[in-house]
Design a protein around this nucleic acid. Structure first.
Lengths: 213, 213
DNA sequence: GACAAACACGAGTCATCGCTCGCATAACTC
DNA sequence: GAGTTATGCGAGCGATGACTCGTGTTTGTC
């Protein structure tokens, strides 16, 4: 993916040298944006409110981002990169050798932890009013993860038609996401119980399919 | 619930006689609003776009609704009323006597059909940018349904602590909603397969709990 | 210290959108 | 038909929010 930090213009946009102060401001603004997006959603978040949350003026915000969408894109890129790393670890081949219950622990725990620590991820990826570019990047990631799950399932279910496997993968994903929302919405004291419950749903769903492995 | 069609004023707001033409316009506007809400979400829908979709002027829209929120409230009320009827039927005591697999068929099929025929319901009930009144009414409905499910579960699981039952009910709901989204997003040709898949998830989740009943 | 470039500010501009208002037409009552 | 009320229109008002611009300050370089 080409690191195109400078708006949407193709060619050689001026790469404007940043000072350390500027880099700090950018990080500050992105964190502020993550907070505001979490509480009000994307379209509910005004650029002025993001600037205020970050403790800077609107003009300063536009020193670093060409428009509101670019903030979401940049934040989405950061989160997406870190998410890719997280799920890359989660799907380690060693994990996939485990029996289903331990496999679920090994795969889900890092993913759950990531979403707990980065609630903006869910908001930005699944919100209804998100800019097109973020949606497209998320869709690409989603299908690559889907393919990964399908490959794993296909290993367990060699005789099953592809369309069935795809459906099971989609269903697994949807259940994970629903459980994730439940976990995030639960009181901290309840979270572990809901994590266990999500694993139970997926275990009982997948165990009969995986069967004797 | 008091049928308060006239804005939010408490007292005796003038009940303004409607002609048949006016009732037709209202229905037309509500249907237009449902369409626009489905495609752009609530906050993305401009009152002008709703009026345009209905083929009337903005002024005409405000002849019948005091403000944008009232449109969502009125539409939400209609859908909520019909939904209550639907799930009242679905949870018929006779259905609850059935073995789990048939119980799931009997309960879920009407609910799935309703959501398929009224996609605005899901958008309005679960959207992130919905006016407070709709949210509150939906929350009330949600907890009443939750209670209903908890009662059923408590009948099957007399020795289980209340907090566990609540968690199972929440989880069941979340899985249903996720499956519903999947069904609505699927190609029409795929829908039946996804309906079956949703039932499979819930059956395998609940069967070990319900056990020998 | 001198110069340039990056950073910071916040009042102001412009477009959008919820909503109003004056006026015209249609329908109901007598 | 006369009077009244409901319905219909669409230009325009006011508020909001994304974004700009003129100006001043800090940082880096020589």
């Amino acid at each position: 993916m080409p690191e195109a930090k400078n708006g949407s213009e193709g060619g050689t946009a001026k790469p404007r040298r940043r000072q350390a102060r500027g880099e700090r401001r950018i990080a500050q603004l992105l964190e502020a944006a993550a907070n505001v997006f979490c509480t009000t959603g994307y379209s509910g978040a005004s650029t002025n409110s993001i600037a205020r949350e970050a403790g800077v003026s609107p003009g300063t915000l536009y020193q670093f981002f060409p428009n509101k969408e670019a903030i979401a894109v940049e934040l989405g890129d950061h989160l997406l990169t870190r998410w890719r790393a997280t799920y890359g670890q989660a799907f380690t081949p060693a994990h996939l050798e485990l029996p289903l219950d331990q496999l679920l622990d090994a795969v889900l725990d890092p993913l759950i932890q990531f979403n707990s620590e980065n609630p903006a991820f869910g908001v930005l990826m699944h919100g209804p009013d998100i800019p097109g570019q973020v949606t497209r990047e998320h869709d690409a990631l989603h299908s690559s993860m889907l393919t990964r799950v399908e490959e794993v399932l296909a290993g367990y279910l060699p005789a099953t038609p592809e369309s069935d496997i795809t459906r099971v993968a989609h269903t697994t994903f949807a259940v994970f996401k629903a459980g994730m929302d439940l976990i995030l919405a639960a009181e901290p004291a309840e979270r572990d119980a809901y994590i266990t419950e999500l694993k139970a749903v997926l275990f009982r769903y997948l165990d009969p399919l995986v069967g004797d492995h």
